[in-house]
Design a protein around this nucleic acid. Sequence first.
DNA 1: CTTGACTCTATACCATGGTATAGGGTTTAC
DNA 2: GTAAACCCTATACCATGGTATAGAGTCAAG
Lengths: 146, 146
Amino acid sequence: MHMKIGEVADAAGVNVQTLRYYERRGLLKEPPRTPSGYRKYEADAVDRIRFIRQAQDLGFTLNEIDELLELRVDDPGRCPTVEARADEKLAEVRRKIGELERMETVLSGLIASCRSRSPTNDCPILEVLEDSEHTQMEGEHIDGMD
Amino acid sequence: MHMKIGEVADAAGVNVQTLRYYERRGLLKEPPRTPSGYRKYEADAVDRIRFIRQAQDLGFTLNEIDELLELRVDDPGRCPTVEARADEKLAEVRRKIGELERMETVLSGLIASCRSRSPTNDCPILEVLEDSEHTQMEGEHIDGMD
DNA sequence: CTTGACTCTATACCATGGTATAGGGTTTAC
DNA sequence: GTAAACCCTATACCATGGTATAGAGTCAAG
């Protein structure tokens, strides 16, 4: 029933050291030990580690991931706090989705233009930023240069 | 017309050192210099830097971002290569979107359950992994533990 | 014509997120 | 009952992505 650290690490596809590192960082709670001091994990530890890796791949830091993993309403009194934090995270997730969707559009366009063999000299991926709202000081004049 | 390094850095919201670092890494091409050796940037450098920061926030490494910035069809002969790479990047982008959408669903659910004051003791964010296709060896028995 | 804010190169340092190694005990399999 | 394969702690090291500092030159304002 219980898993040893090496089994958990293999199942999650990470190094054993990484598990101990996450434990030190507080991302994994300290598991119970056997009488000889071996860590005994439940199977759900594997999911937790997989989530951590996935969230990292999405650009979250370990500190941010820790915050995500703390989001639960075990105590009704903490609800307002939890809700506020979840709202922030949700906004961040939606922002990332939007940015990735712009990338998706641009990459699809690039592939299409590739197939139609219409060369472009500039870097199309930068169009990703096109619809972002930087109200830039376009007209600003800089003098004294060269 | 031309911008000095400090102006570009300010406009993009990064440190001056970061620009020089990106140049060394090959993410920014070496700009022309004034007779005295000052770098002279075009305004589009700012977009490039903004793109780099955005892509980092989405979990891409600087090497991956370099690959994204290389995706262009300036030479029709390179089209097959470019198309293949763009396809890979597109798949990765779509995978990330899918993962973030699962997070979005879970966070929305958490906020809803928060409002309805239904406490849960377990960590709801882990549901993110629910629909992933890990055909796990669920039935595997591990003995000899404790 | 000098002072302050900028630039240059080179080098050193830092934070994050690990990974490896040493030195030792434990468990499993023959 | 012993060797291989695992676990433990502690510590050192590493890669990535910067950031800071030193020492020297440049430029604009007064």
